[in-house]
């Protein structure tokens, strides 16, 4: 059973439909007791880092998620949900994150460091993954295109926590993780076959837990 954390900031529908296609039980909830009884957690997210953290704090879900991650529960952050796993973001003023991974979140400069020309922000569309190291979440996943929509990206990360990246003038951490904590900057639920294979791997990791 996977718990989708419902804190009012995500497209829960498409994530839940993707899980249905993978034949896995899930529950959408904001209640800690309910989420506690699951074998894995998904933290979705669309919107601003500051708003998201403020809701997570207000509801106590921040402490809960951190506790569960430390306990070893499999956790997958998607898009903003991945950014929330880091130490801080500069979006709308510096805000502290969940600090489960090392690094900070900054806005795309929007000006190319090579050419000095402007480029478009958000980073929106399909971009190619480049793998950096093996991980169960990337098991049998092709090094192919996935769908991104975001204006902020993770900087100053630890190399050992970078599993895959994409290039958008800067190097964009795309799949990240340490032990039981994973994140994807893109939307796996919107990334066709490639995205589904990553979600399938996460589901598999969670199911191994159930046994």
């Amino acid at each position: 059973m996977i718990g989708i954390i419902d804190y009012g900031m995500g497209n829960l529908y498409s994530v839940s439909k993707a899980l249905e296609r993978l034949n896995v039980d899930y529950i959408i909830s904001n209640e800690q007791e309910v989420l506690f009884d699951t074998d894995g957690l998904i933290l979705p997210g669309v919107g601003s880092f500051k708003d998201a953290m403020s809701i997570l704090k207000k509801t106590g879900l921040d402490t809960f998620i951190k506790g569960e991650a430390v306990r070893g529960k499999k956790l997958l952050g998607i898009c903003l949900g991945m950014q929330l796993l880091y130490e801080e973001s500069e979006e709308n003023g510096v805000t502290e994150g969940l600090s489960l991974l090392n690094g900070k979140v900054e806005r795309f400069p929007g000006v190319s460091k090579g050419s000095g020309l402007n480029y478009k922000v958000p980073h929106m569309g399909w971009n190619k993954l480049n793998f950096h190291q093996d991980s169960p979440i990337l098991n049998r996943v092709p090094e192919d295109y996935v769908y991104f929509v975001h204006s902020y990206y993770v900087k100053d990360y630890k190399n050992e926590e970078l599993l895959a990246s994409s290039e958008y003038d800067v190097q964009v951490p795309a799949v990240v993780g340490r032990r039981n904590v994973f994140g994807t900057q893109f939307h796996p639920e919107k990334s066709s076959i490639v995205g589904m294979s990553i979600l399938r791997n996460f589901v598999k990791l969670v199911k191994e837990e159930e046994r």
Binding site: A18, Y147, V149, H187, S191, S192, M196
Partner: peptide, 8 residues
């Protein structure tokens, strides 16, 4: 459509 489609 959302239930079956895995692209935006």
């Amino acid at each position: 459509v959302a239930a079956t489609l895995a692209i935006p």
